[in-house]
Simulated scan of single mutants.
Amino acid sequence: DGVDDDGRAFWTGRTLFSELLPDDLDLEFTSSAGDTVLIEDGQLLSGTIDEDAVGAFGGEVVDTVAKAYSKTRARILINEVAALAMRSIMHFGFSIGIDDESIPPEAQERIDEAIDNANDRVGELIAAYEAGELEPLPGRDLSETLEMRIQQQQGRVRDTAGEVAEEYLGEDNPAVVMAQSGARGSMLNLTQMAGCIGGQYVRGERIHRGYENRTLSHFEEGDLTAEAHGFVEHSYRSGLDPKEFFFHAMGGREGLVDTAVRTSKSGYLQRRLINALSELEAQYDGTVRDTTDNVVQFEFGEDGTSPVEVSSSVDESAVDVEEIADRVVDAEFDDDEEKTRFLGGEREPLNLSEHADDWWMEAAGGD
């Protein structure tokens, strides 16, 4: 692709990746990084290859290769992309450590200032609530309105902390690279590691359960401030104080219970579905029947389309069969004349009767 300052030839990452693609692949989509990925004739011309391109769920490149070429070709692509990624990491190196979540003092000051401003606004909301001056939201009473307004303030603080952290960490930060590419983690995780963990919630509300009229014995009765109901000002890197740690454990417990309950419920639902559908078969005539030959559906799925072949994209209804057929025919015939004859154009006479037809037409002066 070019020559470096020392006169040595080099190849770009896009050229290397293009070597793994089918030669006639054409594709255009938007990556999770936000740029446009453009592939023409198997050459990656622009864009970032990330989770949206080769991810496990909905990777556009892998999905297109599997549908337009074959599952085998997609398997080869996945293996080669994995090998290329491993060699790249071995060559250039990629690691993450505790220092990658460090932000400078001026960034921490901006986050602390945002937290102080939010606490002041929460104090004003509480004062207005206690004075009966807080205007209720539609369909909410005063206490519900106060809770929602405080949650909004807490959410804004965390968003601000995330923006500040992202600004100072930079795009070359390994944690940011992983989050933006979709490899692992998210910017929210990074925000909580470097900036501010934010409010802890149980069943969608601030933490209220605990002692009578207060969450912990560390607070006065009737205290409605953010700190007294689960707001964690610190980041994971700076460390939580005991009260914050306790509230954080309460929020984390809900996640663990939810995971356990959700897994058992979905597992049992799957088992019931498998048992209910185990006798159904798609027959050669296109119908779906059970073991006693009763017709359950006259056409599979009411549309006769395999879910495997249908795109998840709203814009693409199904596989472009004509495009695939054209590519197969082009690969099969080197000569355009042969292809034209195969597709039903002009062809040579195959037997005497066809020769005779031509002779009679010429004798009669016809075309």
Rank of each mutant, 00 (worst) to 15 (best):
V37P: 01
L350V: 12
V295D: 03
K265L: 14
D4F: 03
I49N: 01
F246I: 15
Y236P: 06
E279F: 12
D50S: 04
D63Y: 06
P105H: 02
D290V: 04
A82E: 15
P307A: 00
A128P: 05
F29C: 02
D320E: 07
S70L: 04
G204I: 05
A33F: 15
L224H: 06
R156H: 11
T291V: 15
A260G: 08
A161F: 01
R289W: 01
S266F: 12
C196K: 00
L16V: 11
D112W: 09
D330Q: 07
E80G: 06
G132W: 08
Y236D: 11
A107W: 00
K265D: 10
V328T: 13
I197T: 09
A85W: 07
V328E: 14
A56V: 15
P349W: 05
A175L: 13
P105Y: 02
I115V: 10
V328H: 14
A82V: 15
Q192M: 09
I78F: 05
E362D: 10
R327A: 09
G13Y: 12
R341S: 11
I78C: 07
S353K: 09
F219L: 03
Y69T: 02
I126R: 01
A53R: 00
R14T: 07
Y284K: 12
A276M: 09
A66L: 08
R214E: 01
A131N: 15
G252Y: 10
T215W: 00
L216C: 07
Y236R: 13
E233Y: 12
Q192L: 00
D6P: 11
L169C: 01
Q297A: 06
R341C: 06
V176T: 07
E109V: 10
G139I: 04
R121N: 05
L25R: 00
G365Y: 03
